[in-house]
Design a protein around this nucleic acid. Structure first.
Lengths: 300, 300
DNA sequence: GCCAGTCCATGCAAATATGCATAACAGAGA
DNA sequence: TCTCTGTTATGCATATTTGCATGGACTGGC
């Protein structure tokens, strides 16, 4: 420790710096307020107070919002570093926490979150009522480095070395449709006649078709009149009898309103991975949930 | 900007992190409160609140003070990074400031601060009444990187590349004593007979004697019955007629109560440097004071 | 041209944090 | 042993900050 360290440079209100950071990153006071769970006037006043404190205009106030001044832009760079350090503080703190009680945030693809996770969440809640679980259902990979979630369930191998990951098992998905829809197709149904059927697709690109080509189904763009990146919507469309869709076997088989298309066709297989930030692994709560998830998910 | 960045990891109260940092660095809540200009209960409550927020014990509360827990120690490391970033924010902000009004902190050796600086400060205040000047009189080099001061007057060449430095001129110091004291010495006074005189020294080490050896005066430890690192005290001892001391020529010559010892002896010379942090050079206020100091100090 | 949706600024009441005064306690030194 | 200086904790009155409910201004779509 320094003999007589003075904290002149550290005396300014750090929360105001945070307000500035989030406002600048989010682009508006209102958005920042939403992100931070505070009121918009609060953020506005905090930013103004910071400007007064530093004697510096950080934003230019237009009618239509705020734009950073050059000074603000320069400062933002430094405040970002502060934010990064804050993230690491938070990570380390969560990792140190040995309490079972507290919040935990899981992320999974929408369909896993909707149909696979709920019974497991119930089990977690039963075992540890002190844990509050937040579920982030999204198909883009949440950034665990930035702590957008504590634990992620993914279907690809996480490559980030900052993460610890465990492969649980391989899951399978198959083609499903309602009997009503299948009746509209030519019989007998083969991989060849299936080319006249309609499918629900992921996206407009070719990746989905390539996936299907893997299991011997060569389709064209015309086969995909319905496109949605949301798997739950996909599943509901299939249940409505509008098209054939790829659905996780566990979900498809458990619903009597649909049946497998070409039951003898090999399924699509994909891995189930569980991932968490390395620094969080020391947290008792996160460890507990991680293990419970692993245990629950690994046997199909 | 990320599509839907969430600020979960940034939501915790940053001021509490600051409270923790300063408390840990200063060693006690009271010291931290003093350093931060807040009340001790405030710091205590902020730290407690942080502990609650993180669900983590950071300090062990003894009756006699606080000691970091292992978790606190681990966290401190990360919070330090936040503090460093905060320092840089402050530096950048100060550098961006184009206001003349505001605070500025100078540092100089005690004797320069006491006898050289005041008239120059008066000049600064006359020219720019909006500037408030704080003077940090200390003989250890203030750390400009940590912004313990904005501008430093030093007698050695600043080597830190983060600083901008300007050599103003060489200053001289000579041996002074009161006529009364000199009368007690053998006559005629020569470099040889001077070996029987007493001197005021800096420290117990040999550096002071080496300085004197440079100008042809070879003395022993016995010549230094008075030791003080404080030059102002040194000067007062000389004026009391207790011993011979090295005093900046400007100061010694201006005081009729003392006179040069061996007037023909070459003076000790040392440079006067002005230094400031590179990031601060863009500040109009600091630039202004820097230039004023340079102008005032460069002609003897 | 109007309407819905977005943004920021301001007034005011309620919640929150702060500072002061004080208590209780531990060690150093006379 | 007693004082003196240092620490942290607590009660309470006061400042400060916050959130809610507005108002005003702009954009884009119909």
């Amino acid at each position: 420790m320094h003999i007589c360290m003075d904290w002149r440079s550290v005396k300014f209100d750090w929360n105001r710096a945070r307000a500035f950071l989030v406002t600048a990153e989010e682009g508006s006071l209102s958005a920042a307020a939403r992100a931070l769970g505070q009121a918009q006037p609060t953020l506005g006043r905090q930013v103004s107070a910071l400007e007064d404190e530093l004697g510096l205009a950080l934003f230019e106030r237009n009618r239509r919002g705020l734009t950073l001044t050059p000074a603000g832009l320069d400062l933002l760079e430094h405040v970002r570093r502060m934010g990064d350090a804050a993230t690491r503080v938070s990570l380390a703190a969560a990792g140190q926490s040995q309490q079972i009680e507290g919040d935990i945030c899981l992320t999974a693809s929408d369909i896993y979150a909707a149909y696979l996770l709920p019974p497991i969440i119930a089990r977690i809640r039963r075992a540890h009522p002190g844990i509050r679980v937040e579920i982030r259902a999204t198909n883009d990979l949440a950034d665990l480095r930035r702590r957008e979630a504590d634990i992620a369930i993914r279907n690809t191998r996480p490559e980030d070395p900052a993460l610890i990951a465990r492969k649980l098992r391989d899951d399978t998905a198959r083609l499903y449709a309602t009997p009503g829809y299948l009746a509209t197709l030519p019989t007998p149904l083969t991989e060849e006649t299936l080319k006249q059927a309609k499918f629900v697709g992921w996206d407009h690109g070719p990746t989905y078709r390539e996936q299907l080509a893997h299991i011997g189904l060569h389709l064209e763009a015309e086969n995909f009149p319905l496109i949605t990146a949301d798997h739950v919507v996909q599943w509901q469309l299939v249940k409505q009898g509008l098209a054939i869709g790829i659905v996780p076997s566990a979900l498809g088989d458990s619903d009597p309103s649909v049946q497998r298309v070409l039951p003898d066709m090999p399924p699509i297989t994909f891995p189930i991975w569980l991932a968490s930030h390395r620094d969080l692994a020391t947290s008792r709560r996160i460890r507990t949930v991680f293990d419970l998830l692993a245990e629950s998910l690994s046997h199909a």
